[in-house]
């Protein structure tokens, strides 16, 4: 039984890894690099936290 479970574990791992690779490719080809890397640290901080005491 454990050997069967082991094969199933390999199959699930491979399937999820392939899905991530597919989604990565799809995302990188759909959106521009500027959009994907547009996150900036402290954006919301600057709006919501004025640091006035």
């Amino acid at each position: 039984m454990w050997f069967t479970i082991s094969y199933i574990a390999w199959a699930i791992s491979a399937a999820l890894a392939l899905w991530m690779l597919y989604d990565w490719f799809k995302t990188d080809t759909t959106y521009s690099e500027d959009q994907l890397t547009s996150s900036r640290e402290g954006e919301i901080e600057a709006v919501s936290e004025k640091h006035k005491v």
Partner: peptide, 22 residues
Amino acid sequence: TEGFHGDSFIALVIVVLAWLNY
């Protein structure tokens, strides 16, 4: 179980959790 090494579970833990995080 003799001969059972369980390496697949290392892959399962790391890949499934990476997928979840993704």
